[in-house]
Amino acid sequence: MKTILSLITISLMASSTCAQNVIPIPHKTDKNITWSSDEKEYFSDIWQNKVVTNVSEPTMELFQPENPNGTSVIIAPGGGLYALSIESEGTAVAKWLNDKGITAFVLKYRLVPTGEDGVQEITVEGNTNPKRIGERVAPVLPLSIADGLSAISYVRSNASALKLNPNKIGFMGFSAGGAVTMGVTYNYSKANRPDFIVPIYPWTTVLPVQAAPENAPPMLVICASDDPLGLASGSLELYASWLTAQKSAGLHMYSKGGHGFGMKEQGLPSDDWIQRFYDWALAEDIVSSSE
């Protein structure tokens, strides 16, 4: 009996710890968008990755390193705004950053309302009616961007309690999360300005490249030339917009890697993109070599 009670106690403590690591994001609702299905996490056979769909209430999961160095990164996974590639472009990234002393927040921003399998929906529509994807994404993307801005505000206002430097809060986004990253960058105020940004194969066709903001943060763009969605050219345009404005910018354009490589191992140089991010962060004094 004591053994059973001990196991129950440990289980409850683990559940409590997990709950404490999930942070609700303040947000305004939109009466024109409704979700008929609950948020769902499952393994997608199509994407061969764990995904999350039907996010209607934005949250962040906090990943804290043993010895935080003060730098933090909010991570926005991709998935066409129909889903979030929550493992390869989320939790696996956060754990790698934790090993370097960087505090990470995996953001679940609001998504397009879908049925049982959002990944299947976007796959079918992509093959039969790509225009429909844009129509469904258009009203939701502003909400996703608002969630990103709200996430930065939360981290900055709670920086002291989280042992973070309020001037070293970055935003990293993949694909649709890259569009969220740039939406955040084009719309920030003093309270929610990211201190550095890392758009990774950003979805520039859904959010076209704009002029760099006057106080644009340092940016590192990462993509592959063989991206099947044609996002390499948009990544180059984004990089060039920072150069034109004489803002700090870096670019890693891999010849091979495809789209959505995230933390997947493909036996290619693009597998090491996250180490290249860390090298760049050292050069930009976002993290210190002594940490």
Rank of each mutant, 00 (worst) to 15 (best):
112 V>D: 00
128 T>K: 05
141 L>P: 04
169 I>S: 06
105 F>G: 05
152 I>D: 05
176 A>P: 10
135 E>K: 08
128 T>C: 08
95 K>C: 07
186 Y>V: 08
193 R>C: 06
136 R>K: 15
110 R>Y: 01
168 K>W: 02
162 L>D: 10
127 N>D: 10
95 K>D: 06
155 V>P: 01
167 N>I: 01
201 Y>R: 03
115 G>T: 08
184 V>L: 10
180 V>A: 09
114 T>S: 11
124 V>A: 14
189 S>E: 11
137 V>Q: 10
114 T>F: 03
149 L>G: 12
124 V>N: 13
93 V>D: 09
114 T>K: 04
177 G>V: 10
106 V>S: 03
162 L>F: 07
158 N>P: 02
197 I>F: 06
118 G>N: 07
107 L>F: 12
202 P>D: 05
133 I>S: 12
178 G>R: 13
177 G>R: 13
105 F>A: 04
161 A>W: 06
193 R>N: 05
164 L>H: 01
191 A>V: 09
150 S>E: 15
110 R>D: 00
112 V>M: 05
141 L>T: 11
160 S>T: 15
135 E>V: 04
105 F>T: 04
134 G>M: 02
96 W>P: 01
186 Y>H: 08
119 V>N: 15
167 N>P: 09
96 W>K: 03
134 G>K: 14
171 F>A: 09
101 G>C: 00
173 G>F: 11
182 M>W: 06
134 G>H: 11
92 A>N: 12
155 V>I: 15
106 V>H: 00
183 G>N: 08
116 E>K: 15
104 A>G: 09
110 R>A: 01
150 S>K: 04
159 A>S: 15
99 D>C: 08
92 A>M: 12
141 L>E: 03
182 M>N: 09
116 E>G: 12
123 T>S: 15
136 R>G: 02
179 A>K: 12
201 Y>Q: 03
137 V>Y: 04
140 V>D: 01
182 M>V: 07
181 T>D: 10
168 K>I: 02
104 A>N: 10
118 G>D: 08
194 P>Y: 07
151 A>L: 15
142 P>F: 14
199 P>A: 05
138 A>E: 11
166 P>R: 02
106 V>R: 00
96 W>H: 09
164 L>Q: 01
121 E>C: 06
92 A>V: 03
158 N>R: 06
199 P>Q: 07
127 N>F: 13
129 N>F: 11
159 A>M: 13
152 I>H: 06
